[in-house]
Simulated scan of single mutants.
Amino acid sequence: MPERLVVHLNREHPRDVEPEAAVLETDRSFVLEFVNHGGPIHVHLQLDDGLATVATPAANQVYVEADQRRGVEVSIPPDHPPAKGYVELSTGYGAEKARVNVAVTDERKDGGPDVAVDESLAEKADVEDDQSPRLTDVARPVVAAAGLVAVAVVVALAVSDSLAVLVGGAAFLACLAVAAYLLA
């Protein structure tokens, strides 16, 4: 998960740009999260040459609406070399500027892979679900109910002279035979 650096906008005065930290040391992509405390504002991001060799911002121009938040990811590939540089943030056509010095290290700060894996992941989980019904427990009542319906269909066929009842009953008995075959 990318690291985050909050940058406050319009907090002290209009077009004010104020990062919560002046220095960021990271070994992966990071997000500049702009928090706007006033009216709508445009922020321009510019990476110096040293940082631009390993990092790419998702956008160079960012519009943040009044009293809103907006994040911009600065991507760094996993196989990056170490680098140092800065991100310059400017508002008001360059009238207000702030700089965040960034050191990109080649080794993980936590010393592990990108995704932490617990040792228990390799163990096979023995899940016994005694609550789930077995097929035979479900099939017996279904077969009994289908048998009762089949008897009702046979009685209806014997009593009725209607061709529709005869065809429907025959179709039902055929479906019942197919279901019994598939369950067996």
Rank of each mutant, 00 (worst) to 15 (best):
D106M: 13
S90I: 03
A95G: 08
D106T: 05
Y93D: 04
K84P: 01
K84G: 03
L89A: 09
V104L: 13
G92K: 11
V87F: 12
R108Y: 02
D110S: 13
E96T: 13
L89I: 09
V117I: 14
P82M: 06
P113D: 15
A103K: 14
L121Y: 05
D106L: 01
G85I: 06
V127L: 14
T91Q: 01
V100N: 03
P81V: 15
G111W: 13
G112Y: 12
G85A: 09
D118S: 12
D106F: 00
A95W: 14
A98T: 14
L121F: 01
K124M: 07
E88D: 11
S90D: 03
Y93F: 09
P81E: 11
D118H: 15
V117H: 13
R108N: 10
D106W: 00
G92R: 12
R108C: 00
K124I: 00
S120V: 11
A95K: 14
T105Q: 13
E107N: 06
E123F: 10
K97Q: 06
V87C: 02
N101I: 07
T91A: 08
S120H: 05
V100A: 00
V127N: 02
L89W: 11
K109V: 13
A98D: 07
V127T: 15
D118N: 08
P82A: 14
K84V: 07
A98W: 03
A122C: 01
V115L: 14
G94P: 04
L89C: 06
K97H: 09
A116W: 05
T91L: 10
E107L: 03
E119T: 09
E119Y: 09
E123W: 05
L89Y: 07
E123T: 06
G112K: 13
T105G: 07
G111Q: 10
E88N: 05
A103W: 07
A98S: 15
A125D: 00
L89G: 07
G94Y: 12
K97G: 00
